[in-house]
Nucleic acid binder design. Structure first.
Lengths: 129, 129
DNA sequence: CTGTATCCGCCCGGATACTG
DNA sequence: CAGTATCCGGGCGGATACAG
């Protein structure tokens, strides 16, 4: 089959490295909400309630926790401007830009996969009809 | 409950598309184990117990469920060869190759992030010393 | 070996109410 | 608006025992 190097064949060291690296990544940006929050922020939504509306399905409690977590990991900064209405803003840091490749890959794949699923369902319909 | 056509109705479609696409992706390959199992499989481990040893920390029950899920989503195929010891093998499908970019991006980022954390800790040590 | 079934504790996270 | 506190139910997932 792929013995003649058709697939990516890594040495055992690089293999565990892949497992470890992806594990590290998932530990920080894994979970249901982290990346979506980052996307919403990248779209220019900075306020708490804006984000909650934008990231559909998230509760205030969870959003609050996730934001703290993201701040701890250096992806965003929380700023408070005193005033008549106190303005709290969340803004992505430069470090969050390092996720660009991950985000792009995920977005591209998600788009592709959705189209693919539709095709599968159509075929299934035809086959069972 | 949002009655007003909350579907794609915004001027900037790309933004909501990103959220949807990444949401789709996370729905399928999100979670603690999926990608790690795929990596282990890509390393050539095909047997159940091999995978369980390779994907550190996963229990038999969870591994079983994840494998079913991955098979349902077309990432792998389960084959059973009858014999004195029945041989069960899990093999990645071509469709799993579409995840290459995602995996590479995640691996690269995880590696970068780990190095970055080390640097931060060093600096913190120096600052407090 | 390759799983499945059952029990069960724990924690995630929704709902609600409340504060500043 | 921007959260926090509390309650609490469900489910995720570990441990164990068991089946093919």
């Amino acid at each position: 089959m792929d013995q003649s190097g058709s697939k990516v064949k890594l040495g055992s060291k690089e293999c565990s490295a892949a497992l470890t690296a992806v594990g590290d990544a998932l530990y920080v940006i894994g979970g249901k909400w982290k990346l979506r929050i980052i996307i919403a922020l990248s779209e220019g939504f900075t306020r708490f309630n804006e984000l909650q509306r934008r990231v559909e399905g998230i509760s205030a409690r969870v959003l609050s926790n996730e934001l703290k977590d993201l701040e701890l990991n250096g992806f965003l900064v929380r700023t408070v401007q005193a005033g008549s209405p106190v303005v709290v803003e969340y803004k992505l840091t430069d470090y969050s830009d390092t996720l660009a490749d991950v985000l792009n890959a995920l977005r591209a794949w998600g788009t592709m996969h959705r189209a693919n699923i539709k095709t599968r369902m159509k075929e299934a319909t035809q086959a069972t009809s």
